[in-house]
Amino acid sequence: MNDQRKRVGLFVPCYINDFYPHAALATLEILEAHGYEVEYPESQRCCGQPFLNNGLIEEGREFAGHFADTFERYDYIVAPSSSCIGTAKYRYEGVLDPRRHRALAPKLYELCEFLHDVVGVENLKFDHPFPHRVGLHNSCHALRELELASPSELMIPHYSKIERVLSRVEGIEIVRPSRDECCGFGGTFSVQESAVSAMMGRDRIADHRGNGVEIMAGVDLSCLMHMEGLAKRDGTPMRFLHVAQILAGRTDFE
């Protein structure tokens, strides 16, 4: 832990800011508890993902530029979201000035990735036990873009940075679903392809329910928000938590 003097910029996705602020607060608290000086630049805006994913390059370019303006002065940029980090890391290519992008990309971390790769698993200390069975939702950006865990498609040795970080929480029992499949959120996909999206989400929930799980956790609240909406509509007893909430003991919020 020799680089705590380095400055961490906290990026909070727009929907987390308004709908799930406790996940952002949990992220901030975890980073501070591990000795980092964290700054939340209030001038930040959306990373541009909704625009880039829908082919609106001009808007994407504008938000990417703003993201770089806001965050390039930090040593690390950490967010409780693999999809926003994935966007800045991989989808700014050809959108942001290549030199700026090359400088920015290696500084970008999803929270668990930062805890695993930069802080180091052995240095992690979480004070709040969580004696529950937790079904881990593998979001696609975490799995197949940021490579935080081994996806079932690849014939490589199994690993999961998220599981390794979560395992440091006392009492937790992590349950893997039978498929590491997409939940069907997919941004505008969730409304444009509403029927398919809903079936995908319901299938994920049923998979976890089949394991006797009543708490689902993940590193992307967008996926969880979609599944939470489905579970609520169906009256399925399932709670959805961002991994940061478990790590920081902020699990009492609705």
């Binding site: 800011n17 308004d18 709908f19 409304v191 509403s194 999206s197 809903a198 928000m225 909406g229 489905l230």
Partner: peptide
């Protein structure tokens, strides 16, 4: 369109922006 299949999330009492400022 979101509400066709799902319940909508409700905004939290305070946004993270507010929480951060107060903190």
């Amino acid at each position: 369109l979101w509400g066709r299949e799902r319940e909508m999330p409700m905004p939290a009492e305070k946004s993270f922006n507010q929480i951060y400022r107060e903190r």
